[in-house]
Computed example of a mutant assay.
Amino acid sequence: MLLLRRFCQFLIFVALTILTQIGGVAYLLALLATRVLGKRRLAATFGLFILFYAAMAVTANFVAPTFGRVLLSCIPGERGSVFVKSPIYCLLNRNYVTPPMRDLVTALAEDLDREFPGTATVALDGNFPFWDGFPLLPHLSHDDGKKLDLAFYYKTADGDFLNGATRSPIGYFAFEEPAAGDEQPCKGRKDVITTRWNFAWLQPFFPAYGIEEQRTAFALRWLSTEGVERFGLDKIFLEPHIKNALGLSSDTIRFQGCRAARHDDHIHIQIR
């Protein structure tokens, strides 16, 4: 029985570490504290875990810069701001980037707001606060603070711009399906090992918003020009049918490959 309990605790430690980077340590501290205090109940362990995790998450804000990371806010700010879409990304410590990446997306948000007043720029997954090489699953490359996902800019079916909105509550998995005649480099492939999930069953649950072409195209052109020249942007990942539909031709905007996640629900950017 003791062995089973220890195995379950190990699994919880691994899961919390994978999900949050710091959660596993907070869980171990909670287990140690309950033993010292003589309290072995689940409620006590859970309460102490929340306490330790909250303290470590706040501390991470101040320690992360020593690892070359800063956080992006999950709270919408004033006009021309960039914010992380869902509070869950902040709760899971997935909203950290390097200072150059923060400067890049801040400049993008400011320039886009000057072109289209009142426009907010929405970020999605960034990176964890500590250590290069620590994976941010399910992403294949978000492990050094130099990668960030951005949401598309959306409009209603009537063409009205939806500021700060996304089709999906978390910004992912609401795909812009290609038409029959669009470029589809992965059509017909049946890869066994892949993160290119389609989630066809989920699509009917998302609202029928469309990409707001002017703002999205402006952002991508800015990233592939100003972003490259001023901030060292290296790559933008986007599905070919979105690139073609927006009339974009920059070589910086690339297809990510058929085993990586689809990029017709968001924009992936990375710097050198």
Score class of each variant (00 low, 15 high):
Ile170Val: 15
Phe134Asn: 01
Leu31Ser: 00
Glu183Lys: 11
Ala245Phe: 00
Arg40Met: 07
Leu16Glu: 04
Pro135Arg: 08
Arg262Trp: 05
Cys186Phe: 07
Phe128Ala: 07
Ala217Trp: 14
Gln21Trp: 03
His268Glu: 07
Asp132Ile: 08
Asp251His: 11
Asp143Thr: 10
Leu91Ser: 09
Asn244Arg: 15
Pro135Leu: 03
Tyr96Phe: 15
Asn61Tyr: 14
Gly164Glu: 01
Cys74Gln: 08
Arg69Gln: 11
Met1Gln: 10
His268Ile: 08
Leu150His: 13
Glu78Val: 07
Ala165Gly: 06
Ile271Gln: 02
Glu78Gly: 14
Thr17Val: 03
Asp113Asn: 15
Leu150Ile: 02
Ser249Asn: 12
Gly24Ala: 04
Thr45Met: 10
Leu11Asn: 11
Phe62His: 15
Phe130Met: 14
Glu177Asn: 04
Pro204Phe: 10
Gly68Met: 13
Ile75Ala: 12
His268Met: 04
Tyr53Arg: 02
Ala44Trp: 15
Val82Gln: 07
Leu162Gln: 09
Leu28Gly: 04
His268Asn: 07
Leu16His: 05
Ala64Pro: 06
Arg189Pro: 00
Pro138Ser: 03
Arg35Ala: 09
Phe49Cys: 02
Ile211Pro: 10
Cys74Phe: 09
Thr156Leu: 10
Lys243Cys: 09
Pro65Tyr: 07
Phe218His: 06
Thr121Lys: 01
Phe152His: 12
Leu71Ala: 15
Gln184Trp: 07
Pro185His: 12
Ser224Cys: 12
Phe161Glu: 03
Ile18Thr: 08
Tyr96Gln: 03
Ile50Lys: 01
Pro99Phe: 01
Pro178Asn: 08
Gly68Arg: 12
Thr252Phe: 04
Tyr27Ser: 02
Phe255Asn: 07
Glu183Met: 05
Ala180His: 10
Asp264Val: 11
Leu137Met: 14
Ile267Cys: 02
Gln9Lys: 06
Ser141Ile: 08
Ala157Arg: 12
Ile75Met: 10
Ala219Pro: 05
Ile267His: 07
Pro100Met: 03
Ser141Gly: 05
Phe255Thr: 08
Cys258Met: 12
Ala151Trp: 00
Pro135Ile: 01
Arg102Phe: 01
Arg40Ala: 13
His241Val: 04
Glu239His: 11
Ala60Glu: 01
Pro204Glu: 07
Asp191Cys: 08
Asp160Trp: 00
Leu37Ser: 09
Thr119Ile: 12
Asp113Trp: 08
Phe128Met: 09
Arg6Gln: 10
Ala109Pro: 01
Phe116Lys: 15
Ala208Leu: 03
Pro100Asn: 06
Phe49Asp: 03
Thr66Pro: 00
Glu212Met: 00
Phe49His: 11
Gly47Trp: 05
Leu51Asp: 00
Leu140Gln: 14
Thr194Pro: 09
Gly47Leu: 15
Ala30Cys: 03
Trp222Thr: 09
Ala123Gly: 02
Tyr172Gly: 05
Gly126Cys: 07
Ile193Cys: 06
Glu183Asp: 15
Glu177Lys: 14
Leu136Arg: 07
Arg69His: 11
Arg221Asn: 14
